[in-house]
Amino acid sequence: MIKLNLPVHSIAHARAGDKGDVSNISLIAYLDSGWPIIEKLATKEKVLEIFKHMGATRVDRYKLPNLRALNFVIHSALGGGVNSSLRLDRHGKTLSSHLLHELIIPISKDLLPINSPYLEKFKD
């Protein structure tokens, strides 16, 4: 089956939270079939690389297989945190979208949720 390199947004959703200068971002597979893929490919090394330009120094990764979820704890990623940061998004609320956009994985059509807009990419 054909595989395309797509953002992880095609098979998972995410939410970011902040505590001090630490951002945490969940990554949750829509389907059971997506869980082994994110578990294998969404490594803490990859995530560190994605947030390095923001100052990230370390990533811890926690697994919740029952919930098809990973939780990334990204240290020093918030420019000092909500009370010191110079960024427009002081909480780093939008960082979940950055992870969903920047983590690229090979995906076959059968892994997409029903009616996924990404199905368009597999036409012709």
């Binding site: 949750i28 829509y30 919930l67």
Partner: peptide
């Protein structure tokens, strides 16, 4: 839904254990 609950469960959570 399970998805809304899971997103909020991990919101501002570090080590889930």
């Amino acid at each position: 839904s399970k998805a809304t609950i899971t997103e909020q469960l991990l919101y501002e959570t570090h080590d889930p254990s």
